[in-house]
Write a protein that binds this DNA or RNA. Structure first.
Lengths: 120, 120
DNA sequence: TGACAAGATAACTATATAGCTATATATTCA
DNA sequence: TGAATATATAGCTATATAGTTATCTTGTCA
């Protein structure tokens, strides 16, 4: 398992189920429309209609993706008349996305610099 | 776009490409074997053979997933003789996974409490 | 040079899912 | 009650990809 290489520190010991759970969580965020929906909810609750307009998705598709986010516990739903108001249940997702944004920015910039320095 | 609801704060303004990039990044982490591979690299560089043993994946599949991680810039590759040593290029992924672990733990615990309190 | 070993890749199959259309459900209002 | 509206869902198709087997490439060593 450790392949005779010295350790740097304590490695997180994860169960089989934990690997699946982590991957499953990331899968929820692995869709552009779902990221759009979360971003559209940044300022507070929105109806499905509103989210359709904000994201450009059609009604059925937006509903389906909201269902995925709801099942993952990332958004909440509140019914009011014929409307359904969705909101971000866990602002944690925003910090995650921000970190990824920052990382991507730095990564792409570094690659661009490498490319420039290569002289092409 | 804002659907006449008051704002909480400045919402990150993202381009179309940014949504795709964020989702694409998360997609790289949305596979259990790739999470296993990253975890197996926690203590330092490992060969493909070693990673096969550590994760239980077969050679071709491990190679393929390492390729995905490599293309995403999450791991590095170093050739030495007939061996290829892979390592984590960006420790950022570990902090991401840890955060997700913590969040899942808290989330599942909260759900369990709700269930207990419901009296079932 | 030939045999062997490590790794990468091509080609295939099976599965998952994004997006679509059509329909169902539920609420409001005339 | 019936019409209209908002949302959810069922069913379909097309695409992406995880896992597998077989093959190719490259480096080592006799």
């Amino acid at each position: 398992m450790s392949c005779h290489v010295p350790l740097n520190g304590p490695r997180p010991e994860l169960t089989d189920a934990a690997y699946d759970q982590i991957a499953t969580f990331f899968k929820v965020l692995a869709d552009p429309l779902r990221i759009r929906l979360l971003n559209a909810l940044y300022d507070g609750e929105r109806t499905v209609m509103c989210l359709m307009n904000a994201t450009g998705g059609n009604q059925a598709n937006v509903s389906k993706h909201l269902r995925v986010l709801l099942d993952a516990g990332l958004v909440s739903r509140r019914k009011e008349g014929t409307n359904a108001f969705y909101g971000v249940a866990d602002p944690f997702v925003f910090t995650l996305c921000e970190q990824v944004c920052d990382r991507q920015h730095a990564y792409l910039e570094a690659r661009a610099n490498l490319f420039r320095e290569s002289g092409f």
